[in-house]
Design a protein around this nucleic acid. Structure first.
Length: 877
RNA sequence: GGGCGGUUAGCUCAGCUGGUUAGAGCAUCUGACUUACAUUCAGAAGGUCGAGGGUUCGAUCCCUUCACCGCCCACCA
């Protein structure tokens, strides 16, 4: 076999990427003969470039998809990208800015043209990168949230919700990003703790300007929009003042003191300035008390004419000017340090402004109902389970969803206004562009300028990608999907909304399992980000270590949040190399004609020697445990299992033993069959190296990706065999250990005497003498049930087996004595502890008989061991 | 302010219904060019399982208090 000693992953991975795609291997089709297993990819943003989070997310999906595919299910992994409204628009705006232009300069139509150009040029980047990872998506189906059919689905969803009265338009305070100049949903405003100041400002009374009420605020510039001061009706300090008139400083506007339960008497001064147009609470108070709503800002957060002397200033400049002015007129009582959470735009990190504007909203409570019930009933399960509460908590307190965005990249809201009909009656909501007003037949219609929140399209992803609202076979066959893999940040944005959409539009859940994986961080625990410069580029890792290594290393570290540094990828690279070289050894030494070996039929298991029985048993018990682990989403455990089996059972022991017997056709068969099935077992985790090996292991034309997952033969799993072999390996380890302690050169062969009081052991040792001799480098081996310790020999014990290695000139009696003495000490300590426990009446009464029995046996063996050790010391003289 | 998670070897983490001597990888140290692999092999050392209290015959595991770290949610100006 002409395999090179160093596994060349770059070439191999490129080759199979191409091959799989050319064969369109992962294309799924409705097939009533089989059960379906569907995953929809969390669509990365078209602007996205592959980062470690994607790598982890997609590896997880690929593992389970490949696993289920091999298990014979019709697996569909639906890929695609999200148009990512604001994010993408920002990218192209930056491009324009380099030419010194704004989007307004070029106009909507031209700007959209630019966006599409950008999308067509760069939008597939991340798709290509996902392929390099080995993702076995159905690439033929790749979707984009702004594809024509998908857009139709979005419109359909909007219109259908509108018809049910679940979508409404209204003037409310929303989160406004002054840089993006658009509304944001509550989820899109990220709260960051900020050290700010709490300003205490004096508002003088109209009828006694020397007296005043002091209010506290963190945003003093908003005072220019104040239309009242509120106090708690129960607050004794202010009770008498309710209804009095104050003079708003600077603008000299007369405002009233009102009372409202909302006010917390304990915070600040107990008196709150009320700015109904710039604060959500004040907005509510404004409605309750019929206050005036004064908007003091332009959409870019400069102050407008209503701000009087501060008009045209930026909000933060205005803030300091206001403070200065108040100081000058002695109306600033004090400034306190105050830390509070300030909302920031999740796309550009600008401080968001609570801003009064007309927006579209979705009424969420009715949608949440079935989505809550589904999770409570366990129809949808979160893994890890603790996310269930996070989800339920949010859903039970859900607020209406602001879905309109004042940007241009996205699905335009399917609403038209008739310029002839009166306000309020002029709205036309339609899936298709209307020609005329249905009421007055006017043709003067104008479409709503806004587009929909990106998430208003992605919440339809599990079914809109399958052709909804059209009814078709695919939708019927592949929906509901099976599992969804995502990070916790996305639960509210996407997962919760998909569940609601699933029930609302499909009448059924979108998926039954939600797997929430950890965040990938750097070695210091910081999030990976470009600006910090700590981001490891998965593509670089793929180049340097291989995609299999990237995948394997990420997953084996993925118990919770991952702390990743470059060296962590060595484990995967080394393992791939190990697999490669073990295969070389086997392929170089075996001549297998019929490559389809069924270990349960083609081998006389009962006649095999211990190591062969053992490796077969180990393989099937590992396989069975891997299945359990994957089914329960315990991926890192699954990888640990295959790693342990392949490296430390198969390579370290079985292959080492078999090396000497490779001429035996039975050993060849077994070795080959185990390698072949191991490759299959490891394929979901390391698709490339296993696919490459498969070309040498398979009998037909199929790829390993399409091959059938090996069947667990329970009859070939024997714990007795596994424990016998364990005795043997422990004995070998103990002999090696003793040799090392005495500085016996590794290749120097020694004499060894073995004995045991159990006949079983004697048989075991006699049957496997060759193995002992070769692996423990023993020249002459003496096995005897009655044996006295040879002079000048080092001794050791494994279970009931004692071994002696005559060391002649090597031996240092004092040192050996010391060794044995410390062993005696250790054993005595243990036996004392055990004796104490076995004398405890409560223990004997309450502990299960099984445990008591085990402890008794343990004590007995420790005691014999102690006497033996003592004897050994006597023999030393 | 509410909620959740974490604290186990120098580092990163397993330890899945409480029960032998708490495991692995990396790093460290000793030794080995053994013809599959030095991305290797053979060994060693390293832990009062964050602290206190409780439940139990028995606690890394259950309860409780505390400390520190992290995350999420939140309209206290």
């Amino acid at each position: 076999m002409e395999l090179p000693p160093r596994y060349n992953f770059n070439d191999v991975e490129d080759k199979w990427c191409k091959d799989w795609e050319e064969k369109n291997l992962f294309h799924a089709q409705a097939n009533p003969q089989k059960k379906s297993y569907t995953i929809v990819i969390p669509p990365p943003n078209v602007t996205g470039i592959l980062h470690m989070g994607h790598a982890l997310n997609n590896t997880l999906q690929d593992i389970i998809i490949r696993y289920k595919r091999m298990q014979g299910l019709e697996t569909l992994w639906m890929p695609g990208t999200d148009h990512a409204g604001i994010a993408t628009q920002n990218v192209v705006e930056k491009q324009l800015a380099k030419e010194g232009k704004s989007r307004q300069d070029v106009g909507r139509e031209e700007f959209l043209k630019r966006l599409w150009e950008w999308k067509n040029q760069y939008g597939d980047t991340i798709i290509h990168q996902l392929k390099k990872l080995g993702s076995s998506c159905d690439w033929e189906r790749t979707r984009f949230t702004m594809d024509e059919p998908y857009s139709a689905a979005v419109k359909h969803a909007f219109v259908s919700l509108y018809k049910k009265g679940l979508i409404y338009q209204g003037q409310y305070i929303i989160n406004w990003c002054p840089r993006c100049q658009t509304a944001l949903s509550d989820e899109e405003a990220e709260h960051q703790d900020t050290q700010g100041s709490l300003y205490h400002i004096r508002y003088p009374f109209k009828d006694d300007p020397k007296k005043f009420v002091t209010v506290a605020t963190t945003r003093p510039e908003t005072m220019l929009g104040d239309t009242a001061v509120a106090v708690n009706p129960k607050d004794k300090r202010y009770k008498k003042l309710i209804g009095k008139t104050l003079i708003l400083p600077i603008l000299k506007r007369e405002i009233k003191i009102i009372s409202d339960e909302f006010v917390d008497p304990k915070f600040g001064t107990g008196a709150v300035k009320v700015t109904p147009a710039h604060d959500p609470n004040d907005f509510a108070m404004g409605k309750r008390h019929n206050l005036e709503f004064i908007n003091i800002m332009y959409p870019d957060a400069r102050l407008n004419k209503n701000a009087g002397p501060f008009a045209e200033l930026d909000r933060f400049t205005a803030r300091s000017k206001v403070i200065e002015t108040l100081k000058d007129s002695n109306l600033l009582e004090k400034m306190e340090q105050h830390s509070h959470a300030v909302g920031h735009c999740y796309r550009c990190d600008t401080v968001v402004e609570p801003y009064l504007s007309k927006q579209w909203f979705v009424k969420m409570a009715p949608l949440a109902k079935p989505a809550i019930a589904a999770v409570k009933k366990g129809k949808i399960k979160f893994t890890p389970a603790r996310w269930t509460n996070v989800y339920l908590n949010w859903m039970e307190n859900i607020r209406d969803w602001c879905i309109s965005r004042q940007i241009w990249w996205g699905h335009r809201i399917p609403v038209w206004y008739c310029s002839h009909c009166p306000e309020g009656k002029n709205i036309i909501v339609s899936e298709t562009t209307p020609n005329e007003c249905p009421h007055c037949h006017s043709k003067k219609l104008k479409q709503d300028e806004d587009v929909l929140d990106t998430w208003f399209s992605s919440w339809l992803w599990p079914f809109a990608t399958l052709g909804w609202p059209q009814k078709n076979k695919d939708l019927e066959y592949f929906y509901p999907t099976a599992s969804l893999f995502t990070a916790s940040e996305i639960i509210f944005f996407w997962v919760a909304r998909m569940i609601m959409a699933g029930y609302e539009f499909m009448g059924d859940l979108p998926f039954s399992d939600v797997y929430i994986h950890g965040t990938v961080r750097d070695a210091q625990g910081r999030k990976m980000s470009k600006s910090l410069g700590n981001a490891l580029d998965p593509l670089e890792i793929i180049k340097e270590y291989g995609a299999d290594a990237l995948r394997f290393s990420l997953i084996i570290n993925s118990g919770q949040d991952l702390f990743i540094s470059k060296e962590k990828f060595e484990i995967g690279r080394n393992f791939a190399n190990k697999i490669w070289n073990a295969s070389r050894l086997i392929l170089m030494n075996t001549a297998i004609e019929n490559k389809a070996i069924d270990l349960s039929k083609d081998i006389a298991y009962d006649k095999l020697d211990l190591p062969s029985q053992w490796i077969i048993s180990r393989f099937y018990s590992t396989l069975s445990n891997v299945e359990k682990a994957v089914e329960n989403y315990r991926f890192s455990e699954a990888e640990n299992l295959v790693y342990e089996f392949f490296w430390h059972n198969f390579c370290d022991w079985y292959l080492e033993i078999s090396k000497n017997n490779f001429t035996d056709p039975v050993v060849q068969k077994i070795t080959f069959a185990i390698l072949k099935q191991s490759a299959q077992m490891m394929h979901p985790f390391m698709p490339f190296v296993t696919e490459e090996l498969w070309t040498h292991l398979k009998s037909g034309e199929e790829t390993i990706a399409q091959s059938a997952w090996p069947k667990v033969h329970k009859k070939l799993i024997h714990s007795a065999i596994e424990s016998e072999m364990q005795t043997l390996t422990e004995l070998i380890a103990a002999i090696r250990n003793t040799r090392a302690a005495w500085n016996v050169k590794p290749h120097e062969e020694v004499e060894c005497h073995l004995t045991s009081s159990a006949k079983k052991d004697i048989d075991l040792l006699r049957d496997n003498g060759n193995i002992l001799k070769s692996l423990a480098k023993i020249k002459t081996l003496h096995v005897d049930s009655h044996l006295t310790k040879p002079a000048d020999s080092a001794a050791g014990i494994v279970g009931k087996i004692k071994f002696f290695i005559p060391l002649g000139s090597f031996i240092d009696l004092a040192k050996e004595k010391q060794r044995i003495l410390s062993q005696i000490q250790e054993q005595t300590k243990m036996s004392e502890g055990l004796t104490g426990r076995l004398k405890n009446k409560n223990f004997l009464k309450k502990a299960p008989a099984e445990v008591v029995g085990k402890e008794k046996a343990r004590l007995a063996s420790i005691q014999t061991r102690i006497t033996e050790l003592k004897e050994a010391i006597k023999n030393l003289g």
